[in-house]
Design a protein around this nucleic acid. Structure first.
Lengths: 192, 192
DNA sequence: CCGACAAGTCAGCGTTCGATGACTTGAAAG
DNA sequence: CTTTCAAGTCATCGAACGCTGACTTGTCGG
């Protein structure tokens, strides 16, 4: 492995930027911070990405892919695990959506968040909901997941911060069933 | 009324700072921005508040008071109206908690948010919940309210952004009843 | 009308920001 | 070993940042 490796350096910059932007937001992060974490000169950021803004765009563009497969009745449980209990160390310990909210003063970031929330969560939930206001029900359930993620990781509310996915399972089951109008399961493999 | 009024100028600075901090977050707001909005020189901020940080503290310290009175069964409905449907123009159109999340990279802001969420929402809901995990249920319901506020105002999800309090009432009733383990009403004065 | 004092302004400090262009250095090819 | 070219660094720019001390100006009591 050569000591001067364009792709490796680019990747280190992306990694460092992802962490900084997630933890401290866009404005509080400087290009010198990122370059320092990556162990290179800040100039390379402009060489490789053009500007701080474009680096941010590239970091927030490649959000991790969708949800694991599984039965419909466990979709909300899988979503909760994906949002809250997944290992998000690469994003400073929080779901990238929650982390990106820190930069939500920028319209670009807001649009990206909306697209992500709507395309991967609301859309999937709408197909499961019953009744005339399926869209609203789907969004209300998405709001719950987002709120749990925020209260757990940003606000660090005591009970939620220490709760496990299994602790939340019965309540997931109750709320998801109530909002979607059909029986849902709170944890993978639970029988009743 | 004199043209040079210390208290009035101080109040204008606080008002301008509240809006800027809420809309754009702490880091993206400069003292010159605030002073410009207030129509005075930026130096007065340091004269009256000592530093930008202390101005932020003072702005976020006087969060609006609690909830309107009413029957227990409508507490969640009142909370939803307070969080989401109140007139928050003084805070850039969003609940101050949601707005303050933009500055959540700063630990002080996080602590303030936690205190506010726990003291005024979780505490009140815990007293209503049934069962052994009342604290967790109360936090899960608070998470829902926070999530609705965020999806509605920050993410601007389509159905929620256009929904009225009455549209949400039946779902508030269903979710609140499910989480608290006792019958709740979704809208003030609803009989069914 | 006139000092006196507070309210408000001005010029500028030192630092850091994003960004640029000229430069140096490492490694692969001949 | 030398040439060559990309990878990486350095010096620095102009602007904006938070903040300070000296200054000006409005509004009083006398």
């Amino acid at each position: 492995m050569p000591k001067r490796d364009r792709e490796a350096t680019r990747a280190r910059l992306l990694e460092a930027a992802r962490l900084r932007f997630a933890r401290e937001g866009y404005d509080a992060t400087s290009v010198r911070d990122i370059a320092g974490d990556a162990g290179v000169d800040a100039t390379l950021i402009f060489r490789y990405f053009g500007s701080k803004k474009r680096l941010f765009d590239e970091v927030t563009a490649d959000l991790p892919a969708g949800l694991p497969d599984g039965p419909e009745e466990e979709l909300v449980a899988r979503m909760l695990r994906a949002v809250v209990f997944h290992d998000w160390t690469r994003y400073g310990g929080e779901h990238p959506l929650v982390a990106m909210l820190r930069s939500s003063a920028h319209d670009d970031a807001r649009q990206r968040i909306r697209r992500e929330v709507c395309d991967t969560y609301v859309d999937a939930l709408r197909d499961l909901a019953e009744g005339g206001d399926r869209e609203l029900r789907a969004e209300l359930l998405s709001a719950w997941l987002v709120g749990i993620g925020i209260l757990r990781s940003v606000v660090a509310t005591p009970a939620l911060a220490g709760a496990s996915a299994d602790d939340l399972a019965p309540h997931v089951e109750a709320v998801a069933s109530a909002l979607l109008g059909r029986p849902m399961r709170g944890a993978p493999g639970s029988e009743g």
